[in-house]
Design a binder for these strands. Structure first.
Length: 241
DNA sequence: CTCACGATTAGA
DNA sequence: CTAATCGTGAGA
């Protein structure tokens, strides 16, 4: 896998991007690049699957019914921070918090197409060779990018730099975890939505179409019927965007 | 303090 | 299909 030529310099998303409707954020995160700097090295992937979680009214959300606990505290804060939680005694999942302070909504990042640092990912996941299984699930992508509880609450945006340095230069940005716009847009026709994964207990919310995927992308965690027979031919980077 | 269970994954 | 594995949150 090699990287493509970029038309424009990547731009780290700002707070404004996240402080909008959560479904819109979920949809627009597709095609953006999640980057974790590990020992000075960029480990990254293009987001190809997300799920929106709609706070108090959403039975599938950790904040359903206004629950506010130590674990979900960052969901209650301002948008643009990482909400990382530990699940099933062994996996981490990362969300980008949406909306503004006091509105506990977030977008779960469910799958990435590996971009930079693939050798690192293979080591992290103890995989002998390149495979879609590196990042085709929320727990897997966290392991691949070395995202753990340490990253919970991290500011994913460029904004804190802009407040002190009013320049466009991102060279002095010292965040370790962020999401950037590569300049590529996933066309609406390439986005498919459907019910979320693993929320069968959520009664009415179980059927809400809050899961978004890049149509046909081989890294999507669980393909829809039409995409079901896609091969793991994959790893022609971004071929589906 | 107890205890059922989860926004998952790998493997039989 | 089930085991793995433990933090979390609701309730006693």
């Amino acid at each position: 896998v090699t990287s493509r030529k970029l038309l424009t310099k990547p731009k780290i998303l700002n707070r404004t991007f996240y402080d909008r409707g959560t479904r819109k954020v979920a949809r627009e995160l597709l095609g953006k690049r999640l980057v974790h700097i590990v020992k000075g090295r960029r480990i990254s992937g293009i987001i190809v699957e997300t799920e929106a979680y709609l706070g108090s009214k959403d039975r599938a959300a950790h904040t359903f019914g206004g629950r506010r606990t130590q674990r979900n505290e960052v969901m209650w804060g301002e948008g643009g921070h990482a909400y990382v939680y530990f699940i099933y005694g062994m996996h981490y999942c990362i969300n980008a918090v949406a909306k503004s302070e006091g509105i506990p909504e977030a977008v779960l990042i469910r799958a990435l197409e590996p971009d930079e640092g693939i050798d690192f990912m293979m080591r992290a996941r103890r995989h002998p060779k390149i495979s879609v299984t590196l990042t085709n699930g929320p727990g897997k992508l966290c392991e691949a990018l070395a995202i753990t509880r340490e990253e919970n609450g991290a500011d994913l945006t460029i904004d804190r730099c802009r407040t002190t340095v009013s320049s466009e230069s991102q060279g002095d940005f010292n965040g370790l975890l962020f999401i950037e716009d590569t300049g590529l847009k996933v066309p609406a026709a390439k986005i498919i939505s459907g019910p979320r994964i693993g929320v069968d207990y959520a009664e009415e919310a179980k059927h809400w179409p809050l899961r978004f995927c890049v149509r046909g992308n081989p890294f999507v965690s669980k393909p829809w019927p039409p995409e079901m027979k896609l091969k793991n031919k994959a790893l022609e980077p971004f071929r589906n965007l």
